[in-house]
């Protein structure tokens, strides 16, 4: 049968993929998608923990509630983030992160 570690490993791999995407891709929208991947990976481990730590024969729903909140916040974050990207694109005509370096010291 499937063990908790298997879920955690899959979750960690998904997180690593998302992390690699953030580090490697230059398109800010792709980077944003990879961030969503990382968030979802953490959701997976939360749900796994929730299922494996049973309380009175039921999953521990605290973990799932946290996932619920993460999804809600992620939805808000996506909306705001995309709006910012649109605004940025209007100002700069680019979605390439290397072209956005006005914060350079």
């Amino acid at each position: 049968m499937v063990t908790l570690n298997a879920y955690l490993l899959v979750s960690g791999l998904l997180f690593a993929i998302g992390f690699a995407g953030v580090l490697l891709r230059r398109n800010i929208i792709i980077i944003f998608m990879c961030l969503e991947l990382m968030l979802s990976a953490s959701n997976l481990s939360l749900v796994a923990f929730s299922r494996f730590n049973t309380v009175n024969g039921l999953p521990n729903y605290n973990g799932q509630i946290l996932v619920f909140f993460i999804i809600a916040v992620a939805a808000a974050e996506v909306a705001v983030g995309l709006a910012i990207i649109v605004a940025l694109f209007r100002a700069r005509r680019t979605t390439h992160v290397e072209d956005m370096n006005s914060m350079k010291g």
């Binding site: 953030v22 490697l24 992160v97 370096n101 010291g105």
Partner: peptide, 18 residues
């Protein structure tokens, strides 16, 4: 010294963060 770290490169920051 620290000014050099302020590269303005988003992925540079992400790298250091990671």
């Amino acid at each position: 010294l620290l000014r050099r770290l302020q590269s303005g490169n988003l992925q540079g920051y992400a790298f250091v963060f990671g």
